[in-house]
């Protein structure tokens, strides 16, 4: 209970910090404030994808229905954060590069991630029997999980795409932070806060699922 209020307060501080504490970037101006939400949501989307793979692996080993629920809940949350990251990134791209979408390597990767999440839900929707649904979707999630790292090697080689993504604006090659320290503080706080939001909603959904599973099936109607 206390954690919920703390998380709410934390996110309020992050939002205030993003607009009032951190300075706007010199080159980009006010639009640069979107990174305080764009980068953390993308990170959380990848984290949820990892959680989905781990729970899928656990489901195949233990066959506990709760592990299957956890995998599907993390995929749902990951999909949500993935959409937020895509939209915020697209707005950012329009403001800085002049086009909403140009198949930059990271745009390609996040598009593939969206496709995988979409395919995962399509698969879940088309299997009725819960046990079979659990194992088929777990296998798919794990296959996707081993495929995605290959994209790191493949996507930069897709022709007619030069990356415009600033890979060095946060951490330079030598490993030193090149960002303004106040911006970095807000970014890391937002990263922690949104990771907390993921954990909070995940717990909420898991508790709801547990309650639903205790209701006897014949009394539902």
């Amino acid at each position: 209970m206390a954690a919920k209020w703390f998380l709410g307060l934390w996110m309020i501080l992050v939002i205030l910090g993003a607009f009032f504490y951190a300075p706007a970037s010199l080159g980009l101006g006010q639009i640069s404030r979107i990174i305080f939400f764009h980068i953390p949501t993308a990170w959380v989307a990848v984290l949820a994808f990892l959680m989905c793979a781990i729970y899928s692996l656990r489901y195949l080993k233990t066959r506990q229905p709760s592990d299957d629920t956890a995998a599907s809940v993390s995929a749902e949350l990951g999909f949500l954060f993935c959409i937020i990251a895509t939209i915020s990134g697209s707005i950012f791209a329009k403001a800085t590069w002049g086009s909403y979408w140009n198949w930059d390597p990271r745009e390609t990767s996040i598009f593939v991630l969206l496709l995988i999440y979409g395919a995962y839900f399509a698969l879940r929707a088309s299997v009725d029997e819960p046990e079979r649904r659990g194992s088929l979707s777990a296998v798919y999630a794990l296959l996707a999980f081993v495929t995605v790292p290959i994209l790191v090697f493949v996507v930069p080689r897709i022709p007619a795409v030069q990356s415009l993504h600033p890979s060095e604006s946060v951490v330079s090659i030598s490993g030193e932070f090149t960002m303004d320290s106040r911006m970095l503080t807000v970014l890391l706080a937002s990263l922690a806060g949104l990771t907390g939001v993921l954990a909070w909603v995940f717990n909420l959904r898991m508790r709801a699922a547990r309650l639903l599973s205790t209701i006897p099936q014949d009394k539902e109607d």
């Binding site: 496709l115 395919a119 495929t147 493949v154």
Partner: peptide, 27 residues
């Protein structure tokens, strides 16, 4: 094998296979 055990077999196959085939396809 996954699709053969699900309901919407025909439509599902390309949807599931495309994201996983993408690295091979683009190379």
């Amino acid at each position: 094998a996954i699709v053969s055990r699900a309901n919407a077999k025909g439509a599902l196959f390309a949807v599931l296979a495309f994201p996983l085939s993408l690295p091979g396809l683009s190379s």
